Simulated scan of single mutants.
Amino acid sequence: MASQSWYTKISNPAQVGGIETSVLDNGAGRGTRIAWINTGTGLRYKLVLDRAMDIADAFYNQHSLAWLSHSGITSPQPFTERGLDWLRTFNGGLLTTCGLSHVGGPEQDAYGERGLHGQISNIPATIESISQPDPARGKLDMHITGRMMETRVFGPSLELTRTISSTLGQPVIRIHDEVVNRANTPAPHMVLYHFNFGWPLVDEGTKLLWQGPWQAREGGINGEIFREGYDFRTCPAPLDSHTGTGEAVAFIDATPDPNGQCCAGLYNPTLGIAVAMRFQKAELPWLTNWQHWGKGEYVTGIEPSTHPPIGQAKAREQQTLIFLEPGEKRTYTVELEVLFQPEQIDQLLNRLAQADTPPIA
């Protein structure tokens, strides 16, 4: 789309791309609002407006980028404050947002009970605006903005305003979030962007790209993969040890460039495409790599966050838990770009080239 000659050859911008909203009418997601965003480059993706505007399906040309769980899209459920109920409606998808006040496993302490990964992904959005591209006026950008409230009487009351945007002719997804404490008392805050990548982008030989010292999560079979001397940055064939709940997780202290930007992603040399993820260290200092190589559940997560998924109680104990004062806000921006030109991919690989960094002491 470098040439603008096509501007005079279309009547309706939807011929090239744009945003289309609709409502699912079948299955567990019946009645759930969605929006398809088409960038006109082969990159198209589906927002689930009733699930925090998270991203479900995502494709580049014929290739799926995201992992989708058995459940598919379900309607939002209010039961996520306890135990592992969050998993019942975990669609996977390209993005599931975790938080806004707890990221990690189920827990209970003097401050309350919290279920796996918090409530925000089960909260519908109030859509505030949709802006379509209009090539005839030279407008190629498009965006959709919505607002979600994670709230209860007497607090905490955290408001998430999310804008998802793209540009015609660019295979890029931009996510810009603003979290505000609307209560009159301080509120604990944690957020994690649970990006879930699947086949065929993720396949045997796909390279996982990130930079920084790492630490295997305690417990489980994490040491099977995340150990010195093992190539945990190359995706393996499905593993019998990952049947059921088998998984491996590493917490990464992401390394920024001189401008404070961190970069991560994946590269599939067979398909000749890569996905680059960019975010600011000052906003999201941690990165989690989740590897679950189960048969029929073959997925890896690359997840920038304010904290590792250790839970509110542990973060409070470590004195790293964020507290937002009444009216205080924090902003977060994450960008995903599909790379298909060899020189772009080489730049990404060179940016993240490194000898194996040792585990965090």
Rank of each mutant, 00 (worst) to 15 (best):
L140Y: 15
G244W: 02
A2Y: 07
A315I: 06
P78C: 04
I345N: 06
E343D: 14
A274K: 12
R233Q: 15
A237H: 09
E335G: 03
Q211R: 15
G138I: 05
A136I: 06
V48P: 01
Q280L: 15
A14V: 03
I120Y: 06
K295Q: 12
N259G: 15
R174H: 11
V23N: 05
D141C: 11
V180Y: 06
I310D: 11
N196H: 09
L116F: 09
P200G: 13
E247Q: 12
P269E: 13
Y193S: 01
I252M: 03
I19F: 10
I175W: 12
L84A: 02
A52K: 06
Q215M: 13
I34M: 12
A274H: 05
A187L: 00
H176C: 04
I164P: 01
D253S: 15
A136E: 14
P269M: 09
E325A: 15
R88T: 12
L239I: 02
E224Q: 10
R217W: 08
T21C: 14
I130Q: 06
D57M: 03
Y111W: 07
H102D: 03
G169C: 05
L192K: 11
F251R: 07
F232K: 10
S71A: 14
P124F: 10
A355Q: 13
A254L: 02
H307S: 01
E81D: 13
S131K: 14
